[in-house]
Design a protein around this nucleic acid. Structure first.
Lengths: 119, 119
DNA sequence: CTGATGCTCGCACGATCGTTAGAATGTGTA
DNA sequence: TACACATTCTAACGATCGTGCGAGCATCAG
C-alpha cells in the first residue's frame, strides 16, 4: 500500500471503504464489548457462568463445590464477571451471593449457541 | 470445606448442588465456546469483525486500510476469527476474501448488544 | 472478646496473547 | 523465467492472564 494509502484499494470502491473507515468505532469504544468477550473466554469462568445460569443465585462456597475449584479462584473469577457487567452480587451476612445479569444471560446464550454446547 | 465436601453446603440443598455439579459440562466441552469468546475479546479483532459485518466480504488489504492496521496483523487476527468459527474465507486469485459466518454475526450482535455499542 | 467462616486482596509464577519484523509461499503479470 | 503483489508463517518481546498461596477483612457464633 502506497504512502497516500488510497491508490491500491482493489476490491472496495473508495466511497464504501471511506465510509467503513469513518463509521467504525474506535478501539476505546469497543473496550467494554471486548471485556465482555474476555470475561467468558476462559473455560473455568464460562463454567461458573453456566452454573449461575442453571442454579440461579449462589454463594462463593457453593459455586466452589459445584465447580470443583478453590473458593479463592472462584471468587477471583466471579469478580471478573461482575466487573464485565455479566454478574452482580449482594451480601447476606458473611456470604456474598452472585447471580447473572440480563446481559450476562444474553451473552451466555449467544456464546453457547455459537459453539453448540450447554444449551 | 471439609474433606467429604458435602457437609458445609449452606445455601443450596444437597440434591440441587449434586445435580448442578453433575450436569455442568466439563472444561473440555466448553473450550470451543471459550474460544469464541476469546476471539472477540480483543478490541482490534472485534473491530475487524464489525468491519466485516458492515462491509460484507473483504480482502486482507482492504480490511487493513479500513482498520488502519498492518496487513500482517489483520491477517493474523482474521485467521483467529476463522479458527474460532466466526469467519470464513475463500481465495480469489492471489487474494483471500473473508466474511463473517452466521455464528459470527450472531455472537457479534450479542456482544455489541451486551456492551451497548456499535449496533 | 475470641475463634471460625466466608470472602477478598496482593503477589508470584508459568503460560498465553497482541504486535512487530523478517522470511516464506501462492498467484498474477510481463 | 523473473518480478510484484497478497497473504501467511515463524520467532521474539513486552504485556496480560489463570492459578496458587498467604495475608487480611467482614461477619457470625459462642
Amino acid at each position: 500500500m502506497s504512502a497516500d494509502e488510497t491508490c491500491e484499494l482493489l476490491c472496495l470502491d473508495t466511497v464504501k471503504a471511506e465510509r467503513l473507515r469513518h463509521d467504525l468505532p474506535g478501539l476505546d469504544a469497543l473496550t467494554s464489548a471486548a471485556e465482555a468477550g474476555k470475561a467468558l473466554s476462559d473455560p473455568t469462568r464460562l463454567r461458573l457462568a453456566l452454573a449461575l445460569r442453571d442454579g440461579g443465585e449462589m454463594c462463593v462456597c457453593d459455586l466452589a463445590w459445584v465447580s470443583e475449584r478453590q473458593d479463592k479462584l472462584v471468587s477471583h473469577h466471579l469478580r471478573q464477571l461482575r466487573g464485565a457487567g455479566l454478574a452482580c452480587s449482594r451480601k447476606d451476612g458473611r456470604m456474598v451471593l452472585y447471580s447473572l445479569t440480563g446481559r450476562g444471560e444474553a451473552l451466555l446464550a449467544a456464546l453457547t449457541a455459537a459453539a453448540g454446547v450447554a444449551r
